[in-house]
Nucleic acid binder design. Sequence first.
DNA 1: CCGGAAATAT
DNA 2: AATATTTCCG
Length: 566
Amino acid sequence: MVCTANDLQEWKDFPKGLRVLVLDEDTTSAAEIRSKLEAMDYVVSTFCNETEALTAFSNEPESFHLAIVEVNSNNGCGTFKFLETAKELPIIMTSNIHCLSTMMKCIARGAVEFLPKPLSEDKLRNIWQHVVHKAFNAGGGLLPEPLKPVKESIASMLHLKLENVEPDSKISVEIDNLSEIKENDQEQSAGSDKYPAPSTPQLKQGARLLDDGDCQDQNNCSAEKENGEQDGDCKSVETTYGDSAADDTILIGETKTPVKTMIKKDSIDASKSESHMSSHLHNGNSLINVIGGADNPGKASGLTNTSLSKSNRKKMKVDWTPELHKKFVHAVEQLGVDQAIPSRILELMKVEGLTRHNVASHLQKYRMHKRHILPKEEDRRWPRPRDPVQKNYYPQHPIMAFPTYHSNHALPVAPVYSMWGQPGGHPASVQMWGPPAYPPWQATESWQWKPYSGMHADAWGCPVMPPPHGPYASYPQNASGFHNVGVVDNVCSTPQNSFDFHPAEEVIDKVVKEAINKPWLPLPLGLKPPSTDSVLSELSRQGISSIPPHINGSDSFCHGAGSHHD
DNA sequence: CCGGAAATAT
DNA sequence: AATATTTCCG
């Protein structure tokens, strides 16, 4: 093995020592970048022509973890060659050319990010995230050489054993001090094999195991599996037991590398804190919920839980997943306002386990919200004295395709989306309740409807509207000091270049840790690039139906948006 | 018992 | 604060 445990230990402060290949024809620029990177303890190799760079890379691919490649109007084809060749590497494109088309093409070709020049420290500081992200998202066996050590190292740091690394015992993640982690199920139009969106849990059972080795406290583990069909009859509600006072819901988003995890939570408040793990997969319509513990099919972990198929008739809290709600709405609409009474709705929904009470309750809320949101004429007497703070909600119309964007693809922090719709009452982004408005730009399959705080979608991918269903809907609310520090917000409010922010060491540390812990999460600084799909989609929207094998130099390089076909 | 709304609970 | 459950009333 390349990296022994000791070696890995040395990489304790991980990002340092990351080997970055810089390819920039402009020697001055290259030197500049180099010095900045080196100041951050990255190890830099600069190249001023792509042939050299390619040679160096092919000779010693393991010498690099990441590449920053400059594009200019002259070398478009050439550098793309590098981009297309060194696929193992996460490659960040950079350029003086700030045109949309160029940027998207870079992304479409697999770049993990496009950073407009000049490259400030702030932009550069977090590039390591791409390495982590890619390392973890790359397919199991296909893990590119250069990233392998990184992944192992990180895994090691976390005491997280990857299957393909140590097919040994159960895998355990020790989360030392993670604050509450809410489940998050993110998805974007999963399609980029380049940068696979975390968690698109189409997998069967077994895909996700919650291994519970240290069940001191009462853990409520619920694992649901979905069977796909919409018309299936065996639908059941996902219910959860007990309380989620301090529930830790951790979802490991494994793409191709099944990672079994076992979360060991130090019993902090043994008195009342129940660890409650549940993975919410909102994909299918039918969610089968297993309660009582994690079951362990086919795993010799020796932790077979208690029988649970039996109807544990404890109180179940119905989790109104989007799918469930959808059914609900459907039923209601089908019945009409007049006939929409709990019992009928319940009937139409055909959801096992759902009680009339549940429906009634939901209906109550549904109606309530509906009234608030659709202020017909009657509603106007309820002058909503709300919002003394005049939040700038999205004024119902799209935002510019590209928020004068900059390095960090962070949209202005989205308001908190609730499943009940916008407080403002505008259908700009109808969630689940209101009538469908504009077709969401991205698949809304699994949007987290839970009211997580600000999301930072990939601005790139959002040409017209803020993705209400932020594909990545969830940061653990206070998982990192990051938000507290307000970085993201700063980012947003500093539209031009980089944002001025110099996180304290601690914070960085924390962020690093978190990012490493949860590589499937969107990158903290919004570094997450748009999915290739998104880019392609947008390109096509511009009339570029496909990416030419090679850019035709000037023609479409920077003015790519020109041609219009149908 | 049902539906609806208010009161609670988490 | 939001959402689900329970209780109460007609």
